[in-house]
């Protein structure tokens, strides 16, 4: 193509690409990058970079199970036995961007790194007395 496509037409073309090809397209030339960036076609914050497995909570189980495909690379273990306490065997409460929220820790099972949550605030007295009532 000898001339540059009008921005609207180029944006329409690029909109048809999966995120990976969109990212590659933004490296082609400045006008392509400007359309990708200017129109926020590539939402890197929404991308799932890779999926190593899925944690599932079962009713009746005391801990979460990890389902993952057999891999030739470094496998990610669902066993959180590197944690210092009983939390290795507890339910995943919530998750965000590959991080797991447990009872007392935030854990990254892929890197096996973790941080302890700050201590819980003391229970509210009013609530306690309400409970007593």
């Amino acid at each position: 193509m000898t001339a540059a496509l009008p921005d609207d037409v180029l944006a329409e073309v690029l909109r048809h690409l999966a995120p990976r090809w969109l990212a590659a397209s933004s490296s082609v030339c400045k006008s392509w990058r400007d359309v990708v960036d200017g129109r926020r076609l590539l939402r890197t914050d929404l991308l799932l970079l890779s999926l190593a497995g899925i944690f599932a909570n079962y009713i009746g189980h005391d801990y979460s199970e990890l389902f993952s495909r057999p891999t030739t690379g470094d496998p990610i273990s669902g066993k959180l036995d590197f944690l210092p306490s009983e939390d290795a065997w507890c339910m995943v409460r919530d998750h965000c961007n590959g991080l797991l929220l447990l009872e007392s820790y935030v854990v990254n099972p892929a890197t096996r790194r973790w941080v302890a949550l700050p201590p819980y605030p003391p229970p509210c007295r009013i609530t306690m007395s309400m409970r007593c009532l």
Partner: peptide, 15 residues
């Protein structure tokens, strides 16, 4: 465009 490196796309489209 899809499946190509930036350099291949430059070649294809003369960019």
């Amino acid at each position: 465009i899809k499946g190509k490196t930036p350099e291949q796309n430059r070649e294809t489209f003369g960019i």
